[in-house]
Amino acid sequence: GTTHVIKFATLAPPGTTWMNILEEWGQEVKTRSKGRLVFKFYPGGVQGDEPDVLKKMRFNQLQGGAFTGYGIGRMYSPARVLELPFLFNDIDEVDLVRRHFTKTFQQGFHDNGYELLGWMEVGFIHMFSTEPIRSLEDMRSRRVWLWQGDPIGQAFFQASGISPVPLSIIDVYTSLSTGLIDTVYAPPLGAIALQWFTKTRYISSIPLTNGMGGLIVTRRFVDRLPKDLQALLRETGNSYGEKLVAATRVDNAKSIDELKKRGLEFIEPDEGMSDAELLALRNRAADALIKSNYIPASVFEQTRKLLDQHRHARATAGTPAP
């Protein structure tokens, strides 16, 4: 029969945890479909930044990709409620909200022409900088990277009074070297995979948010697949997504030790950076995103309710909230 080729791009460099698991996924699909469905991988951003990959998916050069929240926001922005800064206290809360919304979000992707095969995660996002950052004031005098065209980053920086330097992720490493920027945000694993940590000395100990991700293919491609291959792609996509989430969590924890070993210093925020200030900041950013309908008010409300219930239940059960 015919061979279906799925050209699949990602920013993850070859040899990283993410890429290794993706390769494994490709291998399993190939074996189980007896060569009828094969993956061609384009790792390390060779197909460009996520918006470029999306354009290439629309013109059918590529059929899928492993995306971060940034790319996902361009396909179905409500899913990025999972990435609102300072919203979640721990990883269980993220999992809870994600589970709650999975069905709804899958439908949302479908309606916009994409299929969400499985979730991924990039992990807790920290600030990496060449100078220690202890307060928002410190950050205002730095050259802070903004992933060009990211509304959440934009909203966050706007709420904090920071004017960032917008750049494609492809240009971050060289721009760190040339001094065009001196402060970036990334998960520990990402900072190591992309070598950004070699250009910075300090890490903020408080994460900004938990970076999400997803394995996504175009609906056009899935629709043309025979039913059995559709099922195979969905089933394996889901299970390898779970595998990716689990492996990312383990490796991010390891990466923190690795970064410490390499001499990067974790910076605690000043006394002035109170919880109240962070909360106000989060609310300002969330308000802006809700107002522009990037994240629908209903999704945000549901999330807040869900978290309140969860925290309340935990408090009454006697588990101390972290």
Binding site: K55, K56, F59, N60, Q61, Q148, S168, D171, T174, T178
Partner: peptide, 19 residues
């Protein structure tokens, strides 16, 4: 069998090159 618009997708990337 690729869309020629893809050539412009790449050309457009010039507009995001900071150097």
């Amino acid at each position: 069998e690729l869309d020629s618009a893809l050539l412009i997708v790449e050309l457009n990337r010039l507009a995001s090159s900071p150097n």
